[in-house]
Design a protein around this nucleic acid. Sequence first.
DNA 1: AACAGTAATGCAAATGTTTTCATAAAATTG
DNA 2: CAATTTTATGAAAACATTTGCATTACTGTT
Lengths: 340, 340
Amino acid sequence: MSDKDKRNVDIFAVANAAKVSISTVSRSFNHPEKLKPETRKRIDRAVRKLGYIRNRAAQTMHGIRSGTIGLIVPTMDHAIFSELMEAFARSVEPHGFSMLVASHGYDLEKEYAVARKFLEHRVDGVALIGQDHSEETYQLLSQNQTPAISIWNYDKNSRLPCVGADNLSAGKLAASHLVEHGHRDIAMIFAPRTGNDRAKGRMDGARQTLQAAGISVPQEWILQSPYSLSAAKRDVMALLQSTRRPTALLCGNDVLALGAIYAAQTTGLSVPDDISVIGIGDFKGSAEMYPALTTIRLPAQRIGRIAGEQLSDAIINAPSEMRRINCDIALRVRDSCRPL
Amino acid sequence: MSDKDKRNVDIFAVANAAKVSISTVSRSFNHPEKLKPETRKRIDRAVRKLGYIRNRAAQTMHGIRSGTIGLIVPTMDHAIFSELMEAFARSVEPHGFSMLVASHGYDLEKEYAVARKFLEHRVDGVALIGQDHSEETYQLLSQNQTPAISIWNYDKNSRLPCVGADNLSAGKLAASHLVEHGHRDIAMIFAPRTGNDRAKGRMDGARQTLQAAGISVPQEWILQSPYSLSAAKRDVMALLQSTRRPTALLCGNDVLALGAIYAAQTTGLSVPDDISVIGIGDFKGSAEMYPALTTIRLPAQRIGRIAGEQLSDAIINAPSEMRRINCDIALRVRDSCRPL
DNA sequence: AACAGTAATGCAAATGTTTTCATAAAATTG
DNA sequence: CAATTTTATGAAAACATTTGCATTACTGTT
């Protein structure tokens, strides 16, 4: 016990205590089968007695992997990326990776800075959200030959391997559900689209479908709200109080949809009787809320898991060919939309 | 450009390119004022030309800090810790720390394993949630003299410095609000309390207050639901469909409260007319929902920020005396509870 | 009993930095 | 302008590991 308190318990201390050389101690961790069982036991005891913990930094210096993967998200604040993060972490962890996380608040300069810092830590791989990144960031990753992956969006022309869903289709799917239900007075609310190709793709998809159906959305029915329940609620309430009211509201994501529903309820309107609301995402809780939210399911957990596996694989087994994985999305018809 | 592609751009490569020694290159990063401006410029150019990125692992080997802080949470899946994580990250980042994150799923053995792994990475500090940790974990941290902090709970007897709120008081506050409103038929729903002193403290507090008011809660009105909206909704629906129905429901956290409200609405009951619901936490969105949730505010952002600052400080300036910071909680009266 | 073959261990170099100390160059002083 | 101080740079040691190669200690064979 008293031994354990010492600072700087290094491989030498262990070697001394076990009366072997440091090489042998090192081997006991990395190639235990090469040791005489008795020696191994002796080292084990010393390790435990001294409370020795290997120094990954020293290992990293030998070109050995650092055992870290960097995940850079726009924000951790909201429900959006939580599921993804958890699934991603769970999926890289069995391969021995710890996860460095940082958020950039939708600021691509900041994203670059974070990526750089992660590279200083010699992360074995980097995962980014979406395809909107600064040229600098892309170059940084390719020059350093750091395995990287883009999560959340599928894009057949992505510069990085990607695992995600097709946001354009998601937008289309949402829009066509409303159109099929006979809605023609449709308002839309989306997150800001700068540096956010998810929002952009969804909006484009929705617009294309509406246009194809001969529906035009007046400018004042296209809301852009920051990613927050309160902002969404505020903005939708303003919309609902204006003279002409849409029969349906297409929301760029479930958080915005939630805000919209709360806005409607607060205004005394019934969803879906007075207004239909459709979301995109199918976040945790969307199915349970009242009314249960009709939305487009993006399989966050699946995306996170597969992304983690792909990146781990790219790190461990040399960089194979570049893969782009499109995860299926699906309309989840629930109770927040009704036919006209 | 072609130079940049080379692997292994190290300090030697830069030194060569700039025609100086590696010491000078090193100094240009760590003590730039000691260089002749002209030399510094030359090195700068070389760094840029080669795309050199410093190797933090090598620095760490000099006893220089690794520049990482480990944050270990029970889960990242839910809204609970998202705000905390983001605030914590934002707060340690300006001090130059990157954040390693892992979740343990309320399994304290796993927590220990994660802490160990973080120590292999030579994190400069560790942040844990709450005070329930295995003896092993506590010993590990103290033996390694790793600055550590416990977040989320305030406990005047905590083994680690802590920044958080007093869950016992939170439970009491919630209970007395109901009592003051004349409720006597009160049901409670809490998350599992093993390895989760937050839930335990809140429940104890609530019970004490109810007992003091001469209210006894029948066993079948004490629900224990896993931390999920869907489970909470399911369990509360079962409760509401039983013969005798409580007039109020005290929920261990806002997610459970959300589930409870959805359950009530789905069952056709009105909140608060038919049943009052109070939460604990005041998560993002609780104020905006319909009906706006009456709850006990725990200042997650504030806690995260202060915790980050405290830990950074403990790392940078030698370990000062141990501080325990109690962040104020407050009843937020909104629309989900009504007087009887 | 000598020999080869293998198993177990140790020695020392290498990894990419920082830093102390030494030295060279430049600036200041009388 | 020589002596002294200051400034700028370099050489080498240190940090905690891993690993290739060398060495020693066993096993079994004839």
